[in-house]
Computed example of a mutant assay.
Amino acid sequence: MAPPHNRRPGFSRRAQYGFFLAYVVALAGAIVSAVLLALSSLDPPAFASLRASLAEVTTPVSSGISGVGNWLGSIPSGIGDYIAVRGQNAALRKQLAEQHALFMRARSLSYDNRRLLALLQVRERIAEPVVAARLVSSTGSSTRRFAVLNAGSWQGVATGQPVRGPEGLIGRVLETGPNSARVLLLIDPESVVPVRRTRDGMPALAAGRGDGLIDVKSVALSTTDFGPGDVFVTSGTGGIYPPNIPVARVLRRGRDASIARSFAQADTLDYALVQRAFMPEPPPIPVPIPTPKPAKPKKKK
């Protein structure tokens, strides 16, 4: 039997109001989307200001929801860790015994390094931390990859400052508001970071692909081979990222370029550390103020 052509909800006023409200919500959403699309195309600065204002409003809500979700999600893993703690303890004790000799050698090398630096009177430059903030959200399905921090200009966060996590570099601050900041992640196509290979110091560039991975490209004059497992850290070139921060590990073999995965994954982190730029911009050169010339004394008649 063919379905009837009349799809009216009958005599139920509740169903009729529900259909009407659904149409109104859909029409309002289409209008708002069209206005935002036109604003982003015609007036990007105004759209950026509106986006920062919305981030200021939604950041506290996202922080609360993220905290509750992380707490609920940690319950099963906490139970599993409690059950497996005996085996993990034994494995860690065995690993500690195996690494003891390597630790003693590293300690001796560190002592020699400090002594030589003192003899040469070399001063190391260390990037100072600004604030530790929570990563409340990050884009996971778009080709553009950003994250939002619940700290902004009121906490000392400024545009261009590097952001790192426990595992390695996350990205850099792109936009700031009073209590929130937008972070450009390493995997974004607009992100380019100077790096070097740990085993031989070969310079390279780590550029985001937009799909969760990173392209590592050699900048050396000679042909370079990349092998699986090659580790790259920041080189300090460019004056933004401090040196020796882990960035990525190569996944497959390549020649002059290869695909790598970043150590720090923004969607799995709760907190991040914002640091000052490694080499901040120099202060403006003061303009000398001309000194007035003394007036010549008038000749007496």
Rank of each mutant, 00 (worst) to 15 (best):
P203F: 01
H5I: 06
K293R: 09
Q95Y: 00
F263L: 12
E56H: 12
A28Y: 12
I126N: 02
I289G: 08
W71G: 03
R197E: 10
L119T: 12
G165N: 03
A133Q: 01
L174C: 05
K298M: 12
T291M: 13
I289H: 00
R107Q: 15
L116P: 04
R172V: 04
E175G: 07
L37T: 10
A52Q: 15
T159V: 06
T268I: 12
N150D: 15
R115Y: 13
P194F: 00
G171A: 08
V192F: 06
Q265D: 14
R13G: 07
D43V: 05
Q161V: 12
Q265P: 02
S49M: 11
A266Q: 09
L117H: 13
R144V: 04
G64K: 03
G168H: 11
P242G: 10
N6A: 10
D200G: 08
P284Y: 01
V85G: 04
Y271N: 14
G29P: 01
T159P: 08
S63W: 05
S74P: 07
R196K: 14
E175P: 05
G212E: 00
I65G: 08
I289T: 14
A52S: 15
K300R: 13
L72R: 00
A207P: 03
L149Y: 10
G177M: 05
I83Y: 08
P44H: 09
L37D: 10
A264C: 08
P166T: 11
P3Q: 13
V274H: 02
G156Q: 02
T291H: 01
P280R: 11
G29T: 11
S235M: 00
Y82A: 15
A55E: 11
V219G: 08
D225P: 03
G73A: 13
F20R: 11
P194N: 07
G160S: 01
Q155A: 14
A38D: 12
G208S: 08
R209P: 07
N150H: 06
T159H: 09
G73L: 12
V216L: 09
Q121A: 12
